[in-house]
Design a protein around this nucleic acid. Structure first.
Lengths: 132, 132
DNA sequence: TTACTTGTACTAGCGTCGTAGTACAACCAG
DNA sequence: CTGGTTGTACTACGACGCTAGTACAAGTAA
């Protein structure tokens, strides 16, 4: 494990957000598997040259989302619960919220839902998306 | 013109952003037509109980985007240039950027483009969207 | 030119957010 | 129990963004 994740302090996106995304992405793409242990808060903090609290906040937040599971004195792990049966409902809800925001923003710019559909359609055929 | 726009100071979205959206939306829906004059910076500031500078910044920004046109000593108007022939390319570019962000965010959450398409599809049939 | 309108530039204050520092609490292994 | 690990709570500082205040510049109309 040379470098688990990588952050750019100069990037406008805050460190904690970058790390959150990185972890979610790693799980979604299978680079982190269910049950697997993540680096220690301090360990990852040193590696990323970041305060331990920043890492801890990310872990806490992801635990709240049900993605991670943490045991004091042991470590933090990729949760199995998140991938259980009832997970679908929650996940679906997130998707709905995301699309809500998206449609709203697009509307303010004068785009219709159909415009968005067209754009997305062209992407579907053009690119080969990473499959989880 | 009782109240051109309305803002919520308590809303987390900053005033300038609210106003920007409101103006864009008014133009997109035809409530403000090409060539029409907008309220004066100070006039609108008083009406919205906001500093004149806040309104001015919004006007300036929208002028940069080519949506408005301002003439000193006269006022600010809805630009015709923005709706010219070459406007389409630029507008299309904005749409692409928006969709880029969208797909990226969704990807981080583990959603595929097809998932997004499904969600959007259901919205298209469910709601009757405002047509510009 | 002069009076009055318009938008603009500069500055300061305030709040919020992100991050780091430090000290604490829970847990495991011996 | 004891030493060392783990995550956690609290606090404070710095930076940035948003808004307001004030003074200025450019244009119009008489």
């Amino acid at each position: 494990m040379s470098e688990m994740f990588s952050l750019s302090p100069s990037h406008p996106m805050p460190l904690y957000a970058q790390l959150t995304r990185a972890i979610q992405f790693a799980i979604a793409t299978g680079r982190l598997r269910v049950g697997e242990q993540l680096p220690t808060v301090r360990q990852l903090a040193v590696e990323l040259r970041v305060n331990a609290n920043t890492v801890a906040k990310v872990y806490t937040e992801l635990e709240r989302s049900g993605i991670l599971e943490t045991r004091r004195g042991v470590g933090t792990f990729v949760s199995a619960r998140h991938f259980a049966a009832n997970h679908h409902e929650e996940h679906e809800k997130h998707l709905q919220e995301l699309v809500d925001r998206f449609v709203e923003e697009a509307g303010a710019m004068g785009f219709s839902v159909d415009d968005l559909l067209d754009q997305l359609q062209s992407r579907r055929t053009k690119e080969t998306k990473i499959n989880v």
